[in-house]
Write a protein that binds this DNA or RNA. Sequence first.
DNA 1: TGATAAAAAATGAACGTTCATTCCTGGAGG
DNA 2: CCTCCAGGAATGAACGTTCATTTTTTATCA
Lengths: 190, 190
Amino acid sequence: MEKPDRRCAIVRATLDLVAEQGFHGAPMALVAERAGVAAGTIYRYFESKDVLINEAFHYLEERFFAAVMEHYPEGAPVRERFLHIGGVLVRYCIGAPLEFRFLEQFHNSPYGVEHRREKLFNKNNRNVITELFNEALGLRVVKDLPLPVLFGLAFGPLLDICRDHILHFIELDDDLISRCVEACWDAIRR
Amino acid sequence: MEKPDRRCAIVRATLDLVAEQGFHGAPMALVAERAGVAAGTIYRYFESKDVLINEAFHYLEERFFAAVMEHYPEGAPVRERFLHIGGVLVRYCIGAPLEFRFLEQFHNSPYGVEHRREKLFNKNNRNVITELFNEALGLRVVKDLPLPVLFGLAFGPLLDICRDHILHFIELDDDLISRCVEACWDAIRR
DNA sequence: TGATAAAAAATGAACGTTCATTCCTGGAGG
DNA sequence: CCTCCAGGAATGAACGTTCATTTTTTATCA
């Protein structure tokens, strides 16, 4: 009606639909319906579907980093900070399965490849995880491996277990999560 | 031509196209053209596109297990056998980037989820990797974690680095591959 | 063997859907 | 009356699949 935030409603509708049914299950007509607007209206706010999807991703990315930073043990040793991030990551993902599914879809698509390429070649990419790993490399507490490899060792398995939990292939509890995050630490620690 | 294997030509065309351009880049019309047959002909050999894609996957899966079994150190300790499998896995994937890209696409799609579900619930699933992990669990040389978690810790990062290598985000050589596989072993070993 | 009929396989235009995007309409606010 | 902009039908491209028809192979019999 008035106009609280049609833009936001459209982004949320996109998130939900993609998460629930994948990119194939989120045609613009459905997005429009769920957002309570007409199909054509979306194009007044977003140039194309690609733009809309990228915006939805950045919205989630921000929320995720905000979650990680809550209670982040700023001055603690590297290991402890890593365990914090890993734990938050897993708990956040299985607590918001829809968001997780969207991120998964995004990463395993041309959108995701483009996103990673930008991150990698844009050297002044500063976020808490990259900084932690660079510090750890300098202190020689982790193995001397390229950053993308460390990322894969540390977070690849964590995302895998989140997916398996959401699909009910396994059941994660606090104890199992801790043991998994520690296993990832074993993979990267020197 | 005579008729050596239209069926095979269709499968290969599917593999190549999906690997190069993803599922979206492999419409039946293109598959037909690349295979040197007419569109309708495909349906004499495969009931539907789904069936065709699953067959292409199984074709690759067999080839992969065959590669793993070459020079497999049958009687060696668990660790050594794991290092063999990991090394072969990475070398095989980066040596056949098209096949790897197909497998990646397959796993990150509803096809892949279905496939994993079947594997998991079909308990009499016997392959060399599952057997190795079960033996390792019995001998208590690896952490006491559910099988899917061990799989994720052990192979998730290896597939990640293969992808990054193929996308030229990193450059793998024999030394780096070894160190990565060993890092994965560190993740699962007790 | 050669001619011919029957069966099988291959063809590719056409179909029905689905989708992202465009465009014309109507109506609210100034 | 004019200006905007939301609405949603219209558009056209792309897709998987079908099917009437043609081509090739196989079987039959003189």
